[in-house]
Design a protein around this nucleic acid. Structure first.
Lengths: 187, 187
DNA sequence: TTAATCATGTAACACGTTACATGATTGC
DNA sequence: GCAATCATGTAACGTGTTACATGATTAA
């Protein structure tokens, strides 16, 4: 139920429309959790039925009407409850889920050349993502400026540090893997 | 569609029953892709409808009847086609998906003590997983002994190297993160 | 004049999880 | 006597993806 709790966390910063939530989500949480707009609207619906939030329709003349979502006391309680029981997500974080690794696993069915190409492409993407982290960092800083809370931005930085560690690990892993396959080509 | 292709890859090594596939999956691919038994049976059904495999029911007297799945030519073609178009999965591999990181992101809503506890628990789990890799490596070696193919085991080793890099990255990241928060406590 | 922004959704489908059902044989 | 192994699934639910629909305002 992480999408629901992510939305709850954002709404805890202040009331927003679905549209604004979608943008806030994509500007920050999307680094570690992806969701489509249509899914966000569906989850907001379910959360309202759960009583975690309420919505008020706002009629606008110049722009389309909108619906502003506000977190309820029950929603805040749920958020606190969720934050205090991280165990299952910690266990979960130990499980890699990667279709790419499945391809590496079955790479013996293709040529070494093809496998090398795939690994080199992966390496290049890691580099790009590593550089892209600066952009993500700026996005987080922008949002941090809106919400302006020193305490929160500390943790956002820690999340970005995770990204750096993740992509660095990807780089040094591909270096090793490529070396093994190149050795195979020569040997 | 990675589960389907994982099963296709395993069946490419030889015909198996759903039960055997489930065990083979959990002994090898589960390191980077998890699936429940019931889902595996459902996918096998869908794959048979796609014409990627055929099944023969084997009547047994002493044991429950079984159904042996065999990959078809269409299935082998699909496997090769899949292996030669890795781009989308490479792009996908650049996206982290972690409910745990969402918790870190919102950790400002809790105390530093609670956040430290969570990070320390994560760190401990990384250590355990890192040690557990040896077990996974043995499982892969066992399966490698059954299939016995030098070429394949090269790639299986590379996958295990990824695991090492991943958990090592987790360890050094938590060290940094914990240091930042402990500094916060003192400062 | 074309694209982007604002603002909402519905419908169908694909994939993943949980709970349940059945029942014989073999090892401790 | 009890648990594990063998061997198959169904049903319901939850979550994620894709495609589609609507229509005004504003900036390049």
């Amino acid at each position: 139920m992480s999408l629901k709790h992510g939305l709850l966390g954002l709404l805890n910063y202040g009331s927003m429309t679905g549209y604004e939530l979608d943008k806030a989500f994509k500007a920050s949480l999307s680094f570690f959790w992806q969701a489509k707009t249509s899914q966000i609207y569906r989850e907001l619906d379910a959360m309202e039925r759960h009583g975690w939030l309420t919505s008020q329709r706002v009629i606008q003349s110049e722009k389309p009407n909108k619906r502003v979502y506000t977190i309820t006391e029950d929603g805040k309680e749920e958020l606190v409850k969720w934050l205090s029981s991280p165990e299952s997500d910690i266990v979960d974080a130990m499980h890699v889920r990667s279709a790419f690794l499945m391809r590496v696993f079955f790479a013996g069915e293709t040529s070494i050349q093809q496998s090398l190409e795939m690994l080199r492409r992966y390496r290049q993407k890691c580099l790009e993502s590593s550089e892209g982290l600066r952009v993500a960092y700026d996005a987080i800083s922008d949002y941090g400026a809106i919400v302006s809370d020193e305490k929160k931005s500390k943790y956002w930085e820690i999340v970005v540090l995770y990204g750096e560690a993740f992509f660095d690990a990807g780089l040094s892993w591909t270096d090793k893997a490529i070396a093994i396959l190149e050795e195979e080509l020569r040997g």
